[in-house]
């Protein structure tokens, strides 16, 4: 049957290959144009911009001067401070998210009544917009009429200014006990902690889902064998679940860290980087430099440094678990 077709001759086959190639490229064209114009070209263009004095309009070429300004020049103080705030934000969200999500996933994974209901409840915050949900949290944290202060009063603690509070949490706690702490031990501002609470609330459901998928990929035979050998639940958790779940845990750790490094919406809506810049994370610093001050050159240099950190984490993930991550 095949021999009846023109493809059987060498020219025919070449022609068909050519047609197949043309077709394939036509299929790819829209996606390639889109990705080329709005992903690839900009990635290089961003570096190009960062090499110029570029305040709204392009100025003279300055080489790596913008990077010097950001890393140790006139911009460095604000930049390093924002980077420090970002890492604090990561530190006060990611481990807590992972611990709680793991605690939920392990319990929820077993057959249990109302499982579907729980999963829905946990996942709901994740799909709501960070902007609208952050507005709701700003209301919950309201210093005058807010729910949080009512809860604090309920347990006999003094009301707080929450998102308007620049003092560190350790300083506040120590102050409440009548103690003073040195400035370096003041801790992150209560405003930043407020944003952290929102972040944990928002992202936990996503991590529960990923952990559940990870738990599902552990073969039940391990558990059966362990039970036959008389292992306790605690032993099973530490000796089987945790080690076999470690690729998932690592994946969640990296994804959550990258997400936290990039956080913008919730901080912008809840605090705008204030009070006294104590919640000005790096993406807000970039936004201020680039959009509010119009300094595209410096803004691009800052963005590139942040991107460098993110790519480093991505590479870690690929190197360490890349081969063990597989998609359906």
């Amino acid at each position: 049957m095949v021999s009846a077709r023109p493809a059987a001759t060498p020219q025919g086959r070449r022609r068909r290959t050519l047609i197949e190639n043309v077709h394939a490229w036509l299929f790819l064209l829209p996606a390639i144009i889109g990705l080329g114009v709005f992903e690839f070209f900009p990635a290089f263009f961003a570096f190009w911009i960062s090499l110029f004095r570029w305040v709204i309009i392009q100025g003279p070429f300055v080489g790596l001067q913008n990077y010097a300004d950001v890393l140790w020049g006139p911009r460095s103080e604000a930049f390093w401070k924002s980077l420090g705030t970002t890492f604090t934000y990561v530190l006060f969200t990611v481990p807590i998210e992972i611990a709680i999500a793991l605690g939920i996933a392990v319990v929820l994974f077993r057959p249990l009544r109302a499982r579907g209901f729980y999963r829905t409840a946990y996942f709901m915050p994740y799909i709501t917009s960070t902007v609208a949900a952050a507005i709701v949290f700003a209301w919950i944290f309201n210093p005058t009429y807010g729910l949080m202060n009512w809860a604090l009063e309920g347990v006999g603690l003094p009301a707080q200014r929450w998102l308007d509070e620049p003092s560190g949490v350790i300083e506040l706690i120590a102050g409440g006990l009548g103690l003073g702490v040195p400035a370096w031990a003041a801790g992150p501002s209560l405003a930043l902690i407020g944003v952290c609470i929102f972040t944990v609330w928002h992202f936990i459901g996503y991590q529960v889902v990923i952990f559940m998928a990870g738990l599902g990929s552990i073969s039940p035979e391990y558990y059966e064998a362990a039970r036959i050998d008389g292992a306790t639940e605690r032993q099973i958790f530490w000796k089987i679940t945790m080690p076999l779940l470690s690729p998932t845990t690592f994946f969640v750790l990296i994804i959550a860290t990258i997400g936290a490094l990039r956080a913008f919406n919730q901080v912008f809506v809840m605090t705008r980087g204030g009070p006294l810049d104590t919640s000005r994370v790096v993406s807000l610093e970039i936004f201020r430099t680039f959009f509010q001050q119009g300094n595209f050159g410096i803004g691009s240099a800052m963005a590139f440094i942040l991107v460098g950190i993110i790519l480093l984490l991505t590479f870690f993930q690929f190197r360490l678990v890349g081969r063990r991550v597989h998609y359906e």
Binding site: E39, P42, A46, I49, I258, I286, V307, I310, L311
Partner: peptide
């Protein structure tokens, strides 16, 4: 490529 890299360009 994270958003941050492409948003200014």
């Amino acid at each position: 490529i994270p958003n941050e890299a492409t948003i200014i360009p």
